[in-house]
């Protein structure tokens, strides 16, 4: 490798660092999945997501082997006193801020569970973003 090519490689590596750092700056805490009856093929997931970077991020979905499909949903109170679940195509995670998914509000909806979940087991789950790498964590199955 010539000196010039080496220098270019270093520059390229330096240029990609912020993107890699972006993934590391996003952290998932308190991830858990609601334990549901074995017959049920639908459940919900909850977590707290910190964006410690200086870059706004946009969450676009999730992936986990345990579910055939997953979506982000919110629970919105309606004027008639009902609450309606609505799919969120994306969730902004502004720089320096925290987004909370919790019961009765924003939650991950997991469809087509591949098997019954066991209380206490840890399920690997990744959140995906419009840019950058997914952020993954283990979500504990909890019977609240």
């Amino acid at each position: 490798m010539t000196c010039g090519r080496y220098f270019k490689s270093v520059l390229l590596a330096a240029a990609t660092l912020p993107a890699l750092a972006g993934a590391a700056d996003l952290t998932i805490e308190n991830g858990w999945i609601r334990a549901v009856p074995p017959v049920s093929q639908t459940t919900a997931g909850y977590f707290t997501l910190h964006n410690a970077s200086h870059q706004d991020r946009v969450m676009t979905g999730l992936s986990t082997d345990i579910a055939g499909a997953g979506e982000m949903h919110t629970m919105a109170p309606q004027e008639d006193g009902t609450r309606r679940m609505r799919r969120l195509p994306e969730v902004p995670v502004p720089a320096g801020e925290t987004v909370v998914f919790e019961p009765g509000a924003k939650h991950l909806m997991l469809f087509r569970l591949q098997r019954p979940l066991v209380e206490g087991e840890k399920i690997p789950l990744c959140l995906t973003f419009s840019e950058g790498e997914p952020v993954c964590a283990e979500f504990e199955v909890v019977k609240p």
Binding site: R34, P37, S40, T42, T43, A44, H73, P103, G104, H107
Partner: peptide, 13 residues
């Protein structure tokens, strides 16, 4: 309804 993933199982629990 049982396919509700959030409020219904939470309430039954």
């Amino acid at each position: 309804f049982t396919h509700c993933p959030d409020i219904c199982p939470a309430t039954m629990a």
